[in-house]
Amino acid sequence: MSKTVEFFFDLGSPASYLAYTQLPGICRESGATLVYRPMLLGAVFQATGNASPAMIPAKGRYMLRDLARHAERYGVPMRFNPHFPLNTLGLMRLLVAVQLHQPERFEAALQALYQAIWVDGLNLGEPARVAEVLGQAGFDAEALLAQCAELAVKEALKASSEEAVARGVFGAPSTFVEGELYFGQDRLDFVREALRR
């Protein structure tokens, strides 16, 4: 029976972007199923008393260099977003709306948004820019943005974030294999090993 990899993430986390570039390949190698679990990192931070490493100047400077090293190692494009930190509430609701209403297009939405934020460096705090990115990816931006206001969408994101905290998540990305938590994009070797066992 194939294993499942649960990927708890927030679009505003650069480390989540890097993990996103690697996890599909890792799962393909082992025949595992990758399950995307959008969560609101701000809510997780609030519930756990954690904060972004960028809030500590020395750690923030190191993080920028370390992210660049990993992007180079993975062979993926990455530009640290000049509009960081991002308020991702609307964006994460948008992903949940796609998951609920167009699950077959979820990965296309995820790719478009990650590209816009962590490669193109766009300000997705601007609704017009979000609509533009969605339109270029073939989505009905107006309809999708309207779905973000649905109670079911809001509740699903809240529930996922609360579940993450209940399971020990304190930051992003957080990956689970058979109930075991692996935090950070620099721990993907442990995910790979867990899938081989």
Rank of each mutant, 00 (worst) to 15 (best):
V76R: 06
Q115M: 09
I56N: 05
A54L: 14
E107Y: 05
E104R: 07
A51Y: 11
D140F: 09
A51K: 06
Q46D: 15
A68P: 03
L86D: 03
A108H: 11
I56M: 08
F106M: 12
P38Q: 00
V98G: 05
G75P: 00
Y62S: 02
L89E: 05
L94V: 13
L89D: 06
M92T: 02
R129Q: 07
G49L: 01
Y114F: 15
L94F: 10
G90V: 13
Q102D: 13
Q46G: 13
V76T: 15
V96F: 12
V133Y: 04
G90P: 06
L67G: 02
L94Q: 08
A112D: 00
V133F: 12
F45V: 13
R61P: 00
F106A: 02
A141W: 02
V119N: 04
P38M: 01
Q99R: 01
L95Q: 11
I117F: 02
F106V: 05
G125M: 02
L110I: 08
A109H: 03
A116T: 06
S52G: 14
A58H: 01
V130R: 09
Y114T: 09
P127T: 02
A131P: 00
P103Q: 11
R79V: 10
Y62M: 14
F80E: 02
P85C: 06
A116S: 08
V98H: 06
G138V: 11
F139N: 13
P85K: 12
M63V: 11
P85E: 06
G42M: 00
W118M: 09
E142G: 08
L134Y: 05
N123P: 07
M55T: 15
M92W: 04
Q136W: 08
P82K: 09
V119G: 08
G75Q: 01
F45P: 00
D120Y: 12
